[in-house]
Amino acid sequence: MSNAQQFDTRPQGEIPVESPLAYSMQRSGAPKAKAGTKVTMRERPFLGQLTLRGGAIVLDEALREVVGLGLPGEPLGLVQDQAGERSIQWISPDEWLLIVPGGEEFDIERRLREALGDAHFAISNVGGGQTVLELEGEAASEVLKKSVAYDVHPRHFSVGKGVTTVFAKATVILRRPSEERWELVVRRSFADYTYRWLLDAGEEFDIAVEN
């Protein structure tokens, strides 16, 4: 074992929980779809998110065993399971982001720690610190062009790619899990700014928010 402390942050009982956008949606509203809506935004809150650090070979092996999904083979790669519920994204040569359905992360972390044994690695639970926003629709890439300097043209940003980059005056992890859908992994404290920015940038495309 790596002699690190693991801590399950999820309560057992029924405890009220608030997504990072709870306040924002109440304050800034969540516009409904209109006839001209060309981009739709939705939050996927409360997912399990683990930052994985370590060598690619040992992590890959452990992940295949525990999650059934290996590491992406290339920098900036994003792999996901068939249902699209579990994904692993390259963040850095020794860092990956694992996103799983909320509630799975503690058990996965425990089993990964077991599988990794004495290898040098680190796993940090970051699920409370970031949330996932989805953008979908024909104008999604136009909204992104207003927001990120990164090139989102399909020739450059293909499905199965993900990057950490600047978003307006904040930062974001931007990923493309499918042709029509973009995911933004946003830090909790910047979520309100990001949300307001997207509402404003999407105004000309009648942006809608689905809860």
């Binding site: 930052t51 650090r53 370590g54 020794d94 040098h120 690695f121 680190a122 940090s124 639970n125 970051v126 699920g127 409370g128 610190g129 970031q130 830090r187 909790r188 404290s189």
Partner: peptide, 12 residues
Amino acid sequence: DVYFNSVTDHWA
């Protein structure tokens, strides 16, 4: 052998 990860936003 050490890794650093920011967990500022994870904890209140």
